[in-house]
């Protein structure tokens, strides 16, 4: 059904109450918003959580002002290539990355928000090529997979506080193209990837070893990993299924948590989170046990991945459909964006 046809009854008790609007910003110069994220910005000992918005040719930094208002601090012009996604660095301050390209990522650039060394905003090329997936890791590292004439390259690059790349390490690549990454919580040196052939691979980040290749089966195509954690000898991986469709059963979930025994490569589904009735899915975003995704109806859905069901649905507003949904780095803060550059911050 069209989004405006959704009623509280159709939402099955889901309500907007669990999403409380905190503030709103509008980038009036934005031609077409493509991504939104949050970043820590520290100047002269004062640290603030800021919003970063990306439109096709530029990325802007917004800081909170008084009375729930936001002010644009700086805009990086990124040249001829279009922005594809913002790549936040989870525990970094004053530093983030951005992926640029046409249909696929051709460049990763780092953006420096502030440096006491030179009091300036900078940008520089971190990596170029036929890049298939990129993720910002803890300790100012960036992992990416790319296709080269010799096969696939999976590389981790470390950045200094002022952005300059310090060193790189190549991880042993699997045969299949890696399309997603997730750091493994609870294991400092472990990294998980999902492949185009529906595989889950595990690396040792310190040694570069490819430790295990495990298969997800073909029941759930196009799985992308968002989060991984190790507990009680098992590896739990949170996967999304961007092309999931509405289903009456759990055969086609938007998200699922799968437990792997890395020793035997056997796996079992733990929790399935289905789409709300009448909606089809898109790629989502996961933080802790919360998942969010923009649906093809233009609504934003939020799931509790422990309960395995949708807990909130944000229908399209009067201005139009939602286009972006990302969790901020602080818990319980959802950034929802529209194509016209409007970004709403919700407390969940």
């Amino acid at each position: 059904p069209a989004a405006e046809q959704l009623t509280p009854a159709q939402l099955g008790g889901l309500a907007e109450e669990s999403l409380q609007l905190m503030s709103k910003l509008k980038d009036s110069s934005s031609s077409c918003a493509v991504d939104v994220s949050a970043v820590w910005w520290e100047v002269a000992g004062s640290r603030e959580l800021c919003v970063v918005t990306a439109c096709e040719g530029s990325v802007s930094l917004w800081t909170p002002l008084a009375a729930d208002a936001w002010g644009k601090v700086y805009t990086w012009q990124l040249g001829e290539m279009a922005v594809i996604q913002i790549v936040p660095l989870p525990d970094a301050c004053n530093l983030m990355c951005v992926a640029l390209g046409d249909l696929e990522i051709a460049e990763i650039r780092w953006l420096l928000l502030y440096s006491s060394e030179n009091d300036s905003f900078k940008q520089s090329l971190l990596r170029s090529g036929n890049i298939k997936a990129v993720l910002g890791l803890k300790a100012r590292r960036v992992v990416s997979s790319s296709r080269t004439a010799c096969g696939q390259q999976v590389e981790v690059v470390s950045l200094s506080e002022t952005g300059r790349s310090r060193d790189g390490r190549t991880l042993m690549p699997p045969e299949e193209t890696v399309l997603g990454f997730a750091e493994v919580e609870g294991l400092q040196d472990a990294l998980v990837g999902t492949t185009a052939a529906n595989g889950v691979v595990v690396w040792n980040l310190r040694t570069g070893q490819l430790l295990r290749k495990m298969h997800l089966g073909y029941s759930y195509p196009a799985s992308v990993c968002h989060r991984a954690y190790s507990d009680s000898g098992l590896l739990f991986v949170v996967l999304s299924h961007p092309h999931a469709k509405e289903s009456e059963s759990c055969r086609n979930p938007a998200f699922r948590v799968v437990a792997f025994n890395p020793k035997t490569a056997r796996s079992t589904g733990v929790v399935f989170s289905s789409l709300p009735a009448g909606h089809a899915g898109r790629r989502g975003d996961v933080r802790d046990a919360c998942a969010a995704a923009v649906l093809t109806s233009g609504a934003v859905a939020v799931w509790d991945l422990q309960l395995g069901h949708c807990t909130a649905l944000l229908p399209p507003g009067p201005q139009g459909d939602w286009a972006l949904a990302r969790w901020a780095t602080t818990p319980g803060c959802l950034l929802a964006g529209q194509r016209d550059g409007t970004v709403c911050l919700y407390r969940y």
Binding site: M172, L187, D189, A190, V202, N204, T207, G208, Q209, L210, L211, R212, S230, S232, G233, L234, L235, A259, F260, N261, P262, K263, T264, R266, S267, T268
Partner: peptide, 23 residues
């Protein structure tokens, strides 16, 4: 180590796989 339908589980799976995998 424990037993389940996922096979024998080891709390030190990461260290063990790192010791076994080619480098």
């Amino acid at each position: 180590c424990g037993e389940s339908d996922l096979g024998p589980i080891s709390l030190k799976w990461f260290e063990e796989l790192s010791a076994e995998a080619p480098s």
